[in-house]
Design a protein around this nucleic acid. Structure first.
Length: 639
DNA sequence: TGCCGGACGC
């Protein structure tokens, strides 16, 4: 008669209330008729919060003759508990598994998943390889396990192995779980062609994509995240039942590809279709309003939220609301949402503070951002501890205003709290030191980083380029290629070619452009082409730059023409400057900087009539040049 | 009555 007790214990466990669970268990023990059995111990083990209590439960189970492999379910739960509570350091989990004389398939599966959750891919794999009889759950557990541990390539290999062993018979073929799992791996790897293969394979052997809304939503999410929104839309349209995840995911894809109005259109379509949006959908819709940006649509959503939830805010939704108001330059509205929801949310609300700070940063209100940071640190007055995201928001502020002392103070905070070892913070520190001109500090920060990605390398290459260190930039790039841990992307080449450009190393720049396509498989973007135009034109090879622009793979944009105009100024090429300006004005009619640049070219050549004509024309069109300003700091006050 | 999969913010 264990079932009613198990339900009560499970209820407490699912709500994370171990103390109540343990109290209920002790109460049950007082009843002489109660015998803890094979159903009770797994519940106790699954929910116990730490290794000490876990060992106590283990001892209790042993006393009642249920441990040591006597019961397969208890043994599986012991494996799970030791993995969860002792993590990667304990052999107890492995020992608990080895004690089971003949594990059932579910026991193998549970143990494999537990090892993956503890990050012990090696143990999970050795169990998988030793398993006498695998089922569909086994394969999907291994695919998901590798994906969750960041080993997407391994997940793909296991999926391929599964297809080979099971064939494509519907009865024994891929389960919906394994298809969904491998698609997550494709997203991690950004491997859209494998996702397409999985799609084709699933379509051949089943109707999962159309009939299983879970698989459909994972597939459309994979396409969306890999930048194939049109394909995501096709999958969405083919789904016979569109669940809330499918709607939200497609909306998010539109926002990601900078098409927020399409996302809002989809949101309205969803409401008309009678589907109910949840917190995630609303967060995504708010994000679309922020990207438009549309205060009207955002306010409508705010009103809808208020009617719907009353006074119960959700941290994601509140954060999105603050972000939306910040993007609409309505910082007072953002601040009032922040003040109210910060008090209503009883949990840690650091993300809310972060969003508010980033709103001030995005609107150029650096002083307000710093005031918030200071009050965050005063936890006694209702602040929240700054985390690594906070640091990534404020470090660029130290860089743009060249507030090096504040940057260093932030660096110290990061070191004291262990955030400096995180990639995001490490890259932000690197960028801050580069922009503040402390290139040697940037270098030591780079060398100290335990983990580096493409952004780390590119940031430092760009930093050397900005400070005339083309030789260091080139040797750093060569080291990046030699180490083969990360691949360069178009941005890396922009940094590298710009470094060559600033030092007049035209031939090297041309060589890197050639290598980019031929050796690294990186396709030139508009930005890369603009840096090539800059390279040639800045060195006075204006004709070659123009020739490059007429043959370059991307259509020349404002940055390419702007680079040409800048070079015309250096080399006093008035006629070229005039024709270049016409192209720029066609692309950006509102641009005032370019016209000012041309007027400076006239002025430097003594062509004062032309200067006057241009200035009059600008005034006639109502074009006003933004006033430039510089930033000075003395005794902690900025001017 | 236990094993595997999904969407959102800073």
């Amino acid at each position: 008669m264990a079932s009613p007790h198990v339900s009560v214990l499970n209820l407490h466990g699912r709500q994370g209330r171990w103390r109540e669970l343990a109290a209920h268990y002790r109460l049950l023990l007082l009843d002489g008729a109660f015998r803890p059995d094979t159903f009770v111990f797994p519940v106790l083990l699954r929910h116990c919060p730490d290794i000490y209590l876990g060992e106590a439960v283990h001892a209790d189970a042993a006393k009642r003759g249920l441990a040591g492999g006597a019961d397969p379910f208890v043994s599986a739960a012991l494996v799970e508990m030791y993995c969860r509570c002792a993590g990667a350091l304990s052999g107890a989990a492995r020992q608990a598994f080895d004690e089971i004389p003949t594990p059932a398939t579910v026991t193998w599966n549970a143990a494999i998943s537990s090892f993956f959750r503890a990050g012990r891919c090696d143990c999970a794999r050795s169990l998988f390889d030793r398993m006498p009889c695998r089922n569909g759950v086994t394969w999907s557990a291994v695919v998901a396990g590798y994906t969750q541990n960041g080993q997407g390539r391994e997940a793909l290999l296991v999926f391929k192995k599964m297809v080979e062993e099971l064939g494509s018979a519907r009865s024994s073929g891929p389960t919906p779980h394994s298809v969904a799992g491998v698609l997550s791996a494709c997203v991690h790897l950004w491997d859209v062609s494998f996702a397409m293969q999985v799609h084709g394979y699933a379509a051949k052997v089943s109707r999962y994509v159309e009939d299983d809304d879970f698989v459909g939503s994972v597939l459309l999410d994979a396409y969306g995240k890999c930048g194939r929104v049109a394909m995501a839309r096709q999958v969405f349209d083919s789904m016979s039942h569109k669940n809330v995840v499918a709607w939200s995911s497609l909306m998010a894809s539109f926002v990601r590809e900078d098409n927020p109005s399409e996302a809002m259109g989809l949101f309205r379509e969803m409401i008309w279709a009678g589907a109910a949006p949840n917190e995630v959908t609303l967060t995504t819709a708010l994000s679309a309003c922020a990207h438009l940006p549309s205060m009207t649509a955002g306010k409508e959503l705010h009103a809808y939220l208020f009617r719907r939830r009353g006074e119960n805010p959700d941290i994601f939704v509140s954060s999105a609301l603050i972000f939306m108001y910040g993007k609409c330059r309505a910082l007072d509205c953002a601040r009032s949402v922040f003040e109210k929801d910060r008090d209503l949310l009883c949990r840690s609300v650091t993300p809310l503070w972060n969003t508010m700070v980033s709103g001030y940063v995005a609107n150029g209100r650096a002083d307000d951002a710093w005031l918030m940071i200071r009050s965050m640190c005063r936890l006694s007055s209702g602040g929240a501890a700054p985390n690594s995201i906070t640091l990534a928001i404020i470090l660029p502020l130290c860089a743009t205003s060249s507030l090096l002392p504040l940057g260093k103070e932030t660096h110290c905070y990061a070191v004291r709290n262990g955030f400096d070892r995180e990639l995001l913070v490490g890259n932000s520190l690197l960028d801050m030191y580069c922009k503040c001109g402390e290139i040697s500090s940037a270098r030591s920060q780079f060398e100290l980083m335990p983990e580096k990605n493409r952004i780390s390398w590119t940031t430092l290459i760009d930093g050397y380029g900005m400070h005339g260190g083309a030789a260091e930039a080139i040797s750093l790039f060569q080291r990046m290629v030699a180490e083969q841990r990360v691949n360069p992307d178009p941005i890396t080449f922009v940094a590298l070619i710009s470094a060559c450009s600033h030092c007049g190393l035209v031939e090297e720049g041309l060589r890197f452009f050639k290598e980019m396509k031929e050796s690294h498989g990186v396709l030139p973007t508009a930005q890369v082409c603009a840096s090539m135009v800059d390279l040639l034109a800045r060195a006075g090879r204006i004709e070659e730059a123009k020739e490059f622009m007429s043959t370059m793979p991307a259509t020349p944009g404002a940055s390419a023409w702007g680079a040409l105009l800048g070079a015309c100024r250096i080399h006093g090429e008035v006629a070229d400057a005039e024709s270049t300006l016409q192209h720029l004005l066609a692309l950006e009619p509102e641009g005032t900087g370019f016209r000012t640049l041309l007027s400076n070219i006239y002025a430097e050549r003594g062509m004062l009539d032309q200067v006057a004509k241009l200035r009059t024309a600008m005034a006639g069109e109502g074009v006003v040049k933004k006033r430039g300003y510089s930033w000075v700091e003395t005794r902690n006050t900025s001017f």
